[in-house]
Amino acid sequence: MKPRRPAPLNALRAFEAAARSLSFQTAAAQLFVTPAAVSHQVKHLEEHLGVKLFHRGHRAVELTAQGAALADSLAEAFGLLDLALDRATAPTAAHLRVSTVESFAAKWLAPRLHRFHRDHPELKLRIDTGNEHSDFARDGVDVAIRYGAGGYVEAEKLMDAPAFPVCAPALLHDSERPLTQADDLRRHTLLHDESAAGRSGVPDWPAWLRAAGVDPIEAERGPVFSSIYLAQEAAIAGHGIALGVAPLVAEDLRLGRLIRPFDQILPNAYAFWMVRKPGVASPAVAAFCRWLRQEADDARAT
Rank of each mutant, 00 (worst) to 15 (best):
H117D: 14
Q66G: 00
H58M: 05
R59G: 05
P91E: 10
H120I: 08
D139E: 15
D142K: 06
K52C: 13
G67R: 01
P91F: 12
V143I: 11
A105T: 14
L96K: 09
A155E: 13
F116D: 08
R112M: 02
T189D: 06
D174A: 01
L179M: 09
A71Q: 07
A75C: 06
S134E: 11
A71G: 05
E132A: 15
A65D: 14
F54D: 06
A84L: 08
A65L: 14
G57P: 03
I127N: 09
A60R: 14
A84R: 08
K52D: 14
S73F: 06
R186K: 14
A77V: 03
R118A: 15
G151W: 12
S134A: 15
E176N: 05
D160T: 11
A144I: 01
H120R: 15
A69M: 14
G79I: 01
R59T: 11
D82L: 12
E176S: 10
T189N: 01
Y147E: 04
V153R: 13
L123E: 10
S73L: 10
D142F: 01
G140E: 10
L70K: 04
P91M: 10
S103A: 15
D135R: 13
T100R: 02
R112T: 00
H114C: 09
P162G: 03
H55M: 13
A155P: 03
A94F: 09
L172I: 10
A65C: 05
G150K: 06
D72R: 13
E76L: 08
P178V: 09
H58P: 03
L81D: 07
A71R: 01
A149P: 02
P178I: 08
D128K: 06
R187E: 15
V98K: 05
H188N: 11
L74C: 05
S134P: 04
